[in-house]
Computed example of a mutant assay.
Amino acid sequence: MLPTGNRIQVSILVAARNEEENIERCLQSLHELNFPKENIEIIIGDDDSDDRTYELVSQFIIDKPAFKLIKITSQVAGLKGKANVLAQLAHEAKGEYFFYCDADIVVQPIWISQMLGHFKPETGVVIGITRMKHIHMLADLLSMEWLFALTATRFFSLLKIPITGMGNNMAVTREAYFAIGGYEKIGFSIVEDYTLFMSIVKEGYGFTMAYKPEVISISEPMNTFPELLRQRKRWMHGVMQSYWLTRLSLFVSSLIVPILLVISIWFPINVLSSIIQYYVLVTGISLTAVFMLKQYDLWKAALLFWFYMVSIGLIMLVNYYLPSKTIWKGREY
């Protein structure tokens, strides 16, 4: 799908709040995209940051006409946070396609062209792949978590079963976005990417997944356990709103050991053998993702991932049901 003329074909929309540590890496990767500059625009919405995000973006884009920075200080249609920013950026965008990436993401130079290649006439949304920067074992386990979940998402997408979208690596058509009324019609959600994806699918548009190494974006990982808990509190809202199969998978994977122990009371099953079989299944899927997506540095994490998965799943469930506020980017939801 090659660009023609001097019109804007792709609008990249980036919501940023308090991202002074990450934003320049993101902007540099967007600047290095291998796509005609006259056919692309990059719009950054600063979500009323109280650090140096706005200043750093302003300095970076001063001599780069493809970039545009907007200070977001008001709310539209009762929206908050990232959804509010993206709703306003959509009305500034001129492109036929809206591409989304987070402010802590680094994209590959061929990201745009590779994602565009997955759009067909009926397609409304294309989902990409994201992993974490390779800096420590926790980051690798988080990467493996992403790749495992996205591999499952890929499988179900082939069966035309919608699982989820990803706000840090996703593209939608302008037509599909405004056909559903945009974020103003969707309403506020702390998991705005999932609600956008599902709204487009429910409107009758097709969806697909760009399951290939060429579209993999690199995210900054959570570096502490409290950070991870805050992030997962938010994610769990998305899981609990998602397709029933996703919810069931979370509960089964998180509670597999006690489930097997309970079952063994009434049925003659070998609990240890069942756990080993489950480990082999999960590890097999993990290694398949590692090799299919050519992320060979994650092979050790793939072997350890089962232990992480059953632990973090249970922690996520407990954390979700605890009576506490969801805090994200310094705001309570």
Rank of each mutant, 00 (worst) to 15 (best):
L2T: 14
T4F: 07
R7S: 14
V10C: 12
I12D: 08
L13Y: 04
R17H: 10
E19V: 01
N22F: 15
R25H: 03
C26Q: 04
C26E: 02
E32V: 01
E32F: 02
E41I: 08
E41R: 06
S49H: 03
S49W: 04
V57S: 12
Q59C: 11
D63L: 07
P65C: 01
A66G: 01
L69F: 04
I70Y: 09
K82P: 11
L86I: 14
Q88D: 13
L89C: 05
D104R: 00
I105D: 00
I105V: 08
V106L: 00
V106D: 00
Q108G: 03
P109H: 03
P109S: 02
P109M: 05
W111I: 13
S113C: 05
S113Q: 07
Q114Y: 07
Q114P: 06
E122D: 15
V125Q: 12
K133P: 08
K133C: 15
I135E: 15
H136I: 01
H136F: 13
M137E: 15
A139K: 00
D140M: 04
L141K: 04
S143M: 00
E145S: 15
E145L: 09
W146F: 15
F148I: 06
A149H: 10
L150Q: 13
T151P: 00
T153S: 04
R154D: 11
R154N: 12
F156C: 11
S157M: 02
L158R: 14
K160M: 08
T164E: 05
G167Y: 07
N168V: 07
V172Y: 02
T173R: 10
R174P: 02
R174T: 10
E175Q: 13
Y177V: 08
Y177K: 03
I180Q: 07
I180Y: 06
E184W: 05
E184F: 05
I186T: 01
G187K: 04
F197H: 03
S199M: 01
V201G: 07
K202P: 09
K202R: 11
K202M: 06
E203K: 11
Y205F: 15
G206S: 12
T208A: 11
M209V: 15
A210L: 11
K212M: 12
K212R: 12
P213E: 03
E214C: 01
M222L: 13
M222F: 12
N223I: 14
T224K: 03
F225N: 06
P226E: 11
G238W: 03
S242L: 06
L245V: 14
T246D: 11
R247N: 13
L248K: 08
V257H: 14
I259Y: 12
L260K: 14
L261P: 01
V262T: 15
I263K: 09
I265R: 10
V271S: 02
S273E: 05
S273N: 06
S274L: 06
I276K: 08
Q277K: 11
V280I: 14
V280D: 08
L281P: 00
T283P: 10
T283H: 07
S286K: 05
V290Q: 09
F291V: 13
K294P: 03
K294Y: 10
D297H: 15
A301H: 01
A301K: 01
I315T: 09
M316R: 06
N319H: 05
N319T: 13
Y320W: 02
Y321E: 05
L322K: 03
T326N: 10
W328M: 04
G330T: 11
G330C: 04
E332H: 10
Y333M: 13
